[in-house]
Design a protein around this nucleic acid. Structure first.
Length: 560
DNA sequence: AGTTTCGGCGCC
DNA sequence: AAAGGGCGCCGAAACT
């Protein structure tokens, strides 16, 4: 039996399947099967399913208890290939790809489905899209050629495989959910916010703090309205331009303290309060919808529930099932390690070749032991800091790690000049990212670095172009880190397949595995091995190591 | 009345 | 000390 098969869904709920040869062409007759899940279940030796969209097909398989080993997601591949070819933003559906191949009107992509809170059962899946198997295969074989035509076909193929694996992991995580104790969550809310009042208004603690703020000003002020607060400070003779915390912190006025306390708690209340619990937690699981490849850098996003922004205090409610535990694993200083790997800077690679604290080692070499300064400098280089201490320290960083800084500087220049910028594996930055995209000069194809209405700024680039430069600078690091993280996840997923362990959470450089206590050691080992393997696969032979800090805990809040 | 943008802040 | 990258979320404000 061929290890690679193609699959196309049909209107009547059935599927067409066909084995593929090593060249990607059909190696046997197309078979019509009445049921998707049974068609896949009946072929356990298939190691890779080639299909249109994992997000639309795999949840149906998981619901029927069918797991697949690998897949090739044609629409995810199309997105990556279009970006790589500098055709960012063109429709990525299989139907659009086919139209481009055959000539003819290219259909726009269907609108994105919005998230459904867990409280509403998703009974009504949208009407599926069905592309005939022959058409899918035409797109697929052309995609193989497009991979081959790229500058680094091996890397781009790896990226497509990793993105496809990410789609599988996301679907499995969406099915599993993060173990969540609603009772613990309510306790935390009550401790922080006090009782709720009937009528749905502010809880007690927020109401008290609002009273304190009003009392401090001597008149009624609503702390949740920035305009109200700015006006109140003005009446008190204090000029503030916003109510951001860092600005208020330097203001000497008795309202500041309760105001800052209010804002902190208000945030918990509106974003992760009782209504969040109602909407997103069901049957002991928090169920966000993870979307692999949801950002241009390759980082994931979640649809609903703010799953990637769970405040530290709220993590108290993420508790393993009885007899199980959470293995919480956090990659140590992922971004500078990735910068070392992609820039091949000898000094930074040497530092990143140890598992010990990278920022401490950088500071020993370039900042006379001041770790905080070293960290600021490194992050400033990665984020494109333009002022402040980070910029000053950038010079020291450049002296000691010239290739690393040059690498991100080159990316920034390419971004400013509107050239394509890619991650290590070939994910491509959209040329106009970081801007509003509605600049008339861009539409008219004028030079991207023409001075804008704000006039010429030092650095020989418009404000817009410099924003693109910062974006591109960050993109190569953040995006290459996402490349590595995807491969790490894929490897970890395969290791967990032999265990009862389930991946339940992923956040850029952090992963949570829910497993029986007796599997914890095996999972910790699997994470370490997955990180090593991902480092080798992604970046080739480098001395750079990717250590994780792991914690085996019952409660997420107890990790680190 | 419904939709989009803004402000502020949570996470990395 | 000062405000650089990526996101999502919510209510209010600003629109159609």
């Amino acid at each position: 039996m061929a290890d690679r098969w193609a699959l196309a869904t049909a209107e009547d709920g059935g599927v067409d399947v066909a084995p593929l040869g090593p060249d990607g062409l059909p190696a046997g007759p197309v078979r019509r099967e009445p049921d998707l899940a049974e068609a896949v279940r009946a072929r356990p030796d298939v190691t890779r399913w080639v299909w249109r969209s994992t997000a639309e097909i795999y949840p149906r398989l998981l619901a029927a208890g069918v797991r697949v080993e690998r897949c090739y997601d044609i629409e995810a591949a199309e997105t990556l290939l279009l970006g790589h070819e500098g055709r960012y933003g063109q429709p990525h559906s299989a139907a659009a790809a086919l139209a481009r191949l055959r000539g003819g009107p290219v259909p726009p992509d269907p609108p994105q489905r919005s998230a459904a809170p867990a409280a509403q059962s998703p009974l009504f899946e949208p009407q599926g899209v069905h592309v005939p198997l022959d058409d899918l295969l035409a797109v697929y074989t052309e995609q193989q050629r497009r991979h081959d035509r790229s500058a680094h076909p091996d890397r781009l193929r790896l990226l497509t495989a990793a993105e496809s694996a990410g789609m599988l992991v996301a679907a499995e995580m969406n099915r599993a959910g993060l173990p969540w104790r609603a009772d613990v969550h309510r306790e935390v809310l009550h401790d922080l916010l006090g009782e709720r009042y009937a009528g749905g208004g502010e809880p007690r603690r927020l109401a008290e703090l609002a009273e304190e703020v009003s009392a401090a000003f001597g008149h009624r002020v609503r702390p949740d309205l920035p305009a109200d607060v700015v006006r109140a400070f003005a009446r008190a003779g204090i000029k503030v331009t916003s109510t951001r915390r860092w600005e208020l912190e330097s203001v000497d006025h008795p309202a500041v303290k309760p105001l800052l306390a209010y804002k902190k708690l208000y945030r918990i209340w509106v974003a992760h309060g009782w209504s969040w619990l109602q909407d997103w937690v069901r049957d002991g699981r928090f169920r966000p919808e993870f979307l692999a490849g949801g950002t241009v850098t390759g980082r994931w996003v979640t649809n609903g529930g703010g799953a990637l922004q769970i405040p530290k205090v709220i993590r108290r409610a993420a508790v393993a099932d009885p007899g199980w535990c959470l293995v919480v694993a956090d990659a140590d200083q992922m971004e500078p390690r990735v910068l070392a790997a992609i820039s091949r800077d000898p000094g930074l690679m040497e530092v990143a070749g140890r598992e010990t604290d990278l920022y401490q080692a950088v500071s020993d070499r370039a900042f006379s032991g001041d770790r905080a300064q070293a960290k600021l400098a490194v992050l400033g280089a990665v984020y494109g800091q333009t002022s402040g201490d980070g910029l000053k320290n950038l010079a020291a960083l450049r002296r000691r790690f010239p290739r690393a800084v040059a690498y991100v500087d080159d990316a920034a220049r390419a971004g400013e000049e509107g050239r394509l910028v890619r991650t290590w594996l070939g994910r491509t930055c959209p040329p106009a990212a970081g801007t509003t995209g509605d600049d008339p000069a861009e539409e008219a194809g004028m030079p991207q670095d023409a001075p804008g209405p704000e006039g010429w700024v030092p650095g020989h680039a418009s404000t817009d172009a410099r924003a693109r430069g910062r974006f591109a600078r960050n993109f190569v690091v953040q995006g290459s880190a996402a490349d590595w993280a995807l491969l790490m996840l894929a490897a970890l997923r395969q290791a967990c397949a032999d265990l009862a362990a389930e991946l339940v959470f992923f956040q850029h450089d952090e992963v949570i595995v829910h497993c029986p206590r007796e599997e914890a050691d095996a999972v910790v080992t699997a994470i370490r091995e997955a990180a090593d393997l991902a480092g080798r696969l992604t970046f080739g032979r480098t001395p750079v190591r990717f250590p994780f800090t792991t914690a085996v805990v019952e409660c997420y809040a107890d990790a680190k």
